[in-house]
């Protein structure tokens, strides 16, 4: 478990990092290193250069701009959990991040790292898709924005080009009285979920007007479930119907933690919990 040899480069600023990235297709961005370094040690990846963006201070800021909360890519999970504005404007993030691994990992692991890595079992990518966050990418030709719904392309596959760096994520601060839900089922605290759900409901006079569901730990990327949402707008929650419709929405993929049947079952249970909590 020793990584293959690589070079290390500490980027002075964003332009510097982009320059290096552009000059070497085999280079890779080092953020918090909580997924990358184990992958290197297990020899699952052998990049030429690690471009450390840890000293670029502009990437470590949390800002409120109008109706958006903007997380710099290098904000650690702990930093976000301890940020007063985040806890006021988007309190669900605190609840969600508390389930991301353990304190030592949350101290090093970064927001941008988790979004960019795109682990299908991770909480943050699913949340970004739920609220359709805007993901800001910087490259040699400047900045572009990709909506989270367009960002995840497949298993660990995202819209980031090889010469781009994810610099920040823009979250709409809860608009129109949308209520948010987060829950997941793990065998041990901090593990990747066997199945997890982030969801939202918009109500008018206690009538559900809009329902959104995004599951994680269930497939090759954050999984939306449009047919299930549609059903829930018209019908009361019913476990077996929901489980059947979810199977139409999502190609549940078994992993070492649980079978696809188990994931479908737990997803249906989570929907039940959400409808109970938010209604």
């Amino acid at each position: 478990m020793k990584s293959p040899a690589f070079s290390y480069y500490q980027a002075k600023d964003l332009a510097d990092a982009i320059n290096i990235k552009k000059s070497d297709d085999d280079s890779i961005i080092l953020a918090g290193g909580q997924s990358l370094l184990p992958a290197l040690n297990m020899r699952l990846s052998s990049p030429s250069v690690l471009i450390d963006i840890g000293s670029i201070n502009e990437l470590k800021k949390i800002k409120v701009e109008g109706s958006y909360l903007i997380m710099g890519a290098m904000c650690s999970h702990s930093q976000i959990m301890n940020n007063k504005e985040v806890n006021e404007k988007l309190p669900i993030l605190n609840k969600l991040l508390a389930q991301v691994a353990h304190p030592a990992i949350r101290n090093k692991g970064t927001h941008g790292g988790s979004i960019a890595y795109g682990d299908p079992a991770a909480e943050l990518p699913a949340f970004a898709v739920l609220v359709n966050a805007e993901i800001i990418l910087s490259g040699p030709n400047g900045e572009r924005t990709v909506s989270a719904k367009e960002f995840y392309k497949g298993l660990f596959e995202t819209a980031i080009n090889s010469d781009e760096i994810l610099t920040s994520v823009k979250y709409p601060i809860n608009q129109n009285g949308m209520k948010l839900f987060f829950d997941e089922v793990t065998r041990r605290h901090g593990d990747y979920a066997m199945a997890g759900l982030v969801g939202s409901i918009k109500q008018n006079n206690k009538i559900n007007e809009e329902i959104n569901l995004v599951f994680f730990g269930t497939g090759d990327r954050p999984n939306e479930a449009p047919k299930t949402c549609e059903y829930l707008l018209k019908n009361e929650y019913n476990y077996s119907d929901i489980k059947d419709i979810l199977k139409n929405d999502i190609d549940f993929a078994s992993d070492v933690s649980s079978s696809s049947d188990m994931k479908a079952h737990l997803s249906a249970i989570l929907v039940g919990r959400m409808m109970k909590e938010l209604n």
Binding site: R188, H189, V256, S257
Partner: peptide, 10 residues
Amino acid sequence: ADYLVPMAYE
């Protein structure tokens, strides 16, 4: 990550 040992939390 995949071989689960008992941890303090549980």
